[in-house]
Design a binder for these strands. Structure first.
Length: 448
RNA sequence: GGCGGGUUUGCCAAGUGGGAAGGCGGAGGUCUGCAAAACCUCUAUGAGUCGGUUCGAUUCCGACACCCGCCUCCA
C-alpha cells in the first residue's frame, strides 16, 4: 500500500513502525460552530484511510483531538455569555453527530485540549529547559524557530522566504522573532474565566502545542500517520514537528497525509457568496448522509473537489443503481467470492477511489449481464467496510401495500386497466413504485 | 515575490510512451396493456495553446495562457 507523503513529496510504500499496529492522528475540529462541508471532507478522507488500513488487517489506533480552547472559542464564549464548557460541549456533540450521519467512524480516543493541560505544560517545560522556548515579558511562552534547524522540512519553506503578512504585525503578543509562535498565552481580561495555572502564570495553551502533546501522549513520541487539510501543513504541522522533535529528539511522524480543499459550485465557500453549507443545511434540503458521503469520498483526496448539487444528484442516481444491484443479490451462504477485480489494487495506490469505484461499477454491469458470482453479497459486505455506504435491507413491504399490489395485479389479469392504474397512482402517493418484471410485480420504496 | 497543484467527452472524474476507465446525463433497445422501474447497447480519431524528444505523446521536456492552494492560528 502506498501513500503520498507530504514530508518527501513522493508516493512511498507504507510500512508501519510496529505492524500490525498503526498509530493514526487526525487533526480534529475547533468546536465553536457547526462543521461545514469543507471540514467534513477532511474527516471523510481520514475515514476512508482508516477503514482501508483496517480492511488490510492493520490494527489502527486512531486519535483525534478536540480543540476546545482557542481565540475564536473565547470570542464566542464572551459574546454568548455562556461558559466555555457549554459552548464546546454543544458543538462537540453536534460534530460527533455529523460524523455519525456520514457514517464516519469515531476515533478511539478523542482527547480535549482542556483535559490535556498537564501534558501540555510538561511539554512546554521541556522546551523551555532545552532552550527551544523562551518566556516573553507578559508571561507568554514562545517557541524559537531559529533553535530548530529542520524548520520548514514539511512545508518546504525556507525561513527567509516567508513573506511577512499583516497578521504578523498585528499580533498582540511580544516575541523575539516575528515568526516565533506561542506555546502558552498569558491570561488577559478578555479571556474571562478561561485560564489555567502554569509555571509561567495564568494562561492557556497555544494552538499547535496541544496536538504535539496529545498525539505523543496517546501514540508515543514517534508514530505512523498524521493527517489534516492541506492548509494545516503550514504553520500548524510544521510547528508540531518543531515542538515535538525538539522535545524528544526523535522523529515525530513517519507519514504525513493531507487532503485538498473543496469548492462549492466552483467557488471558494464563503458566507457572503451564499455557498456555505453545513451538514444540517444539506439534510434540510433533502439530501441524505450517504449521498453526501458518496460525493465527498468519490474524488481523490489530494484533488480539489468541486461540491455541487449536480454532483449530489449524480451520487443519488449512482447509489440507487448500487442499491438495486445489492437488493437482487441472493443472500450469502457458503464461500465468499473473490473481491472485485481491481478494487484493492486501486486502493493500494494512494487510495485511488475513482479507480476503485470504476471497478465496482464494472462488476455491477458484468453481474447484471451474466449473473453475480456466488458469495457476492458477502464479498460486498467486506468491500463496504471500506466504502461505508451501507447495504439496503430487503425492505419488508407493509401488508396494506402488498394488498394493493395484489389487487392491482388481479385487476391487470382481468384487463381492468383503469382500476390497476388507479392503484398504481395510489401506491405512488404512498411512496411506492411498482416494477412489473417478467417474474411478476415488485414493490419498491422510493426516496423522498 | 517564494513554494505547490491543476487544465481530459454535455457535467463529474481515472489510468496510460503504442488504438482514453468509471459515474451522471443523453440516445437507442429489451420488457410492458400503456407506462414506470429495471437491465442492455451506444455516447471524446482526441486530451488548454505552441514547440521539442521519439518509429510513435494525452502521457516525457520546454515555453505560453488560464484557474486554484499555501506563505503564522482556515479542513
Amino acid at each position: 500500500m502506498k501513500f503520498f507523503n507530504t514530508l518527501t513529496r513522493t508516493t512511498e510504500e507504507f510500512v508501519p513502525a510496529n505492524p500490525p499496529h498503526v498509530g493514526l492522528y487526525t487533526c480534529g475540529p475547533t468546536v465553536y460552530n457547526y462543521a461545514h462541508i469543507g471540514n467534513l471532507r477532511a474527516f471523510m478522507f481520514e475515514d476512508v484511510l482508516r477503514r482501508y488500513l483496517e480492511y488490510r488487517g492493520y490494527q489502527v489506533r486512531h486519535v483525534m483531538n478536540i480543540t476546545d480552547v482557542e481565540d475564536k472559542i473565547i470570542r464566542t464564549v464572551r459574546e454568548s455569555g455562556k461558559s466555555l464548557k457549554e459552548v464546546t460541549e454543544f458543538y462537540t456533540q453536534e460534530f460527533l453527530r455529523d460524523l455519525a450521519t456520514l457514517n464516519i467512524k469515531s476515533a478511539h480516543v478523542l482527547p480535549r485540549a482542556t483535559e490535556s493541560i498537564p501534558a501540555i505544560i510538561e511539554l512546554i517545560s521541556k522546551l523551555v529547559e532545552n532552550n527551544h522556548a523562551y518566556v516573553g515579558e507578559d508571561g507568554s511562552v514562545y517557541y524559537s524557530i531559529r533553535s530548530f534547524k529542520d524548520y520548514g522540512k514539511l512545508s518546504h519553506f525556507k525561513l527567509d522566504e516567508l513573506q511577512a503578512t499583516g497578521r504578523v504585525q498585528h499580533d498582540e503578543y511580544t516575541r523575539e522573532s516575528a515568526s516565533d509562535f506561542a506555546l502558552w498565552k498569558s491570561w488577559d481580561e478578555a479571556d474571562g474565566d478561561v485560564k489555567w495555572a502554569s509555571p509561567w502564570g495564568l494562561g492557556r495553551p497555544g494552538w499547535h502545542i496541544e496536538c504535539s502533546a496529545m498525539s505523543m501522549q496517546h501514540l508515543g513520541a514517534s508514530f505512523d500517520l498524521h493527517c489534516g487539510g492541506e492548509d494545516l501543513i503550514f504553520p500548524h504541522h510544521e510547528d508540531e514537528i518543531a515542538q515535538s522533535e525538539a522535545a524528544t529528539g526523535k522523529p515525530f511522524v513517519r507519514y504525513w497525509l493531507h487532503n485538498a480543499h473543496l469548492l462549492v459550485e466552483g467557488k471558494k465557500m464563503s458566507k457572503s457568496a451564499g455557498n456555505f453549507f453545513t451538514l444540517r443545511d444539506l439534510l434540510a434540503k433533502g439530501w441524505t448522509g450517504r449521498e453526501i458521503r458518496y460525493v465527498l469520498l468519490s474524488t481523490h483526496y489530494r484533488k480539489q473537489l468541486d461540491f455541487t448539487f449536480d454532483g449530489l444528484q449524480a451520487a443519488r442516481s449512482a447509489l440507487q443503481r448500487l442499491d438495486e444491484f445489492l437488493l437482487k443479490l441472493p443472500d450469502a451462504a457458503g464461500p465468499i467470492c473473490p473481491v472485485i477485480a481491481g478494487f484493492e489494487a486501486a486502493m493500494d495506490d494512494d487510495l485511488n477511489i475513482s479507480a476503485a469505484l470504476a471497478a465496482v461499477f464494472e462488476f455491477i454491469r458484468e453481474s447484471n449481464k451474466n449473473g453475480a458470482p456466488p458469495g457476492a453479497l458477502a464479498m460486498w459486505q467486506r468491500v463496504d467496510t471500506v466504502l461505508g455506504f451501507g447495504i439496503p435491507g430487503k425492505a419488508s413491504v407493509p401488508a396494506e401495500i402488498q394488498a394493493l399490489v395484489d389487487e392491482r395485479q388481479a385487476a391487470r389479469k382481468a384487463k381492468n386497466f383503469k382500476r390497476s392504474d388507479e392503484i398504481r397512482d395510489q401506491l405512488a402517493q404512498a411512496g411506492w413504485v411498482i416494477e412489473d418484471t417478467p417474474q411478476g410485480p415488485r414493490a419498491k420504496r422510493v426516496a423522498g
